[in-house]
Design a protein around this nucleic acid. Structure first.
Length: 190
DNA sequence: GATAAGATCATCT
DNA sequence: GATGATCTTATCA
């Protein structure tokens, strides 16, 4: 076993977005809060790929909001949706090619936190983290803790909430760990 | 179980 | 002024 307590690197996120997305399933998202660390195993992600992908925010052009997606990989793209929820992405691929992976669900201590808005609420992620470097262990980063996930355990599904994007809405760019829905959900214990 | 509507605001036209 | 990479609650069955 190697050392797993190390942030996933910029080289990791510079690869093609679908590869990054699929391989992030089973990795860990780690948040530093008040000197303690909260780690969630990644259960579901979505890939948003380039200016041609009508579901990708950057397909509408380079604006103040989407600027970060045109920058270096491994940075956070955090935005507010529907006036109430934050969504966390990690930027991928090369500079000038806008692409990112949306983190949609994680499992913390066996509890499924299902939904991009819910997980940001749980980990206290908001726009103050927009553009931060996720490849250094500071406030938020990714780790490979060694749990092996076979390709057959990861389902490729259409993305959620992008019906407006026509044929792009049908791309199987959501990746979800099988049977992740069987764990106890947060709603059950509150 | 399913479906529908309301909340609420940064961003872009 | 319209919209959205969501979630919660209400209502129906």
């Amino acid at each position: 076993m190697g050392i797993h307590r190390k942030a996933l690197s910029k080289a990791y996120f510079s690869r093609p977005t679908v590869q990054v997305a699929r391989s992030l399933v089973g990795k860990y998202l780690v948040r530093s809060l008040d000197g303690r660390e909260v780690a969630g195993r990644i259960i579901e992600v979505e890939a948003y790929i380039g200016p041609g992908d009508k579901a990708c925010h950057a397909s509408k052009g380079r604006t103040k909001r989407t600027e970060v997606m045109f920058g270096p990989s491994g940075r956070a793209y955090v935005y507010l949706i529907y006036g109430m929820y934050h969504c966390l992405n990690v930027v991928t691929e090369r500079e000038e090619f806008p692409a990112a992976v949306l983190i949609r669900a994680i499992e913390v201590d066996g509890v499924l936190i299902d939904g991009p808005g819910r997980l940001c609420r749980a980990l206290q992620i908001d726009r103050s983290l927009n553009r931060i470097d996720l490849t250094i262990q500071e406030s938020l980063w990714f780790e490979d803790r060694g749990g092996r996930i076979s390709k057959g355990q990861v389902a490729a599904l259409p993305r959620i909430g992008v019906d407006y994007a026509g044929v792009w809405a049908k791309k199987p760019w959501r990746f979800r760990l099988h049977r992740a829905g069987n764990v106890r959900s947060r709603r059950d214990k509150e």
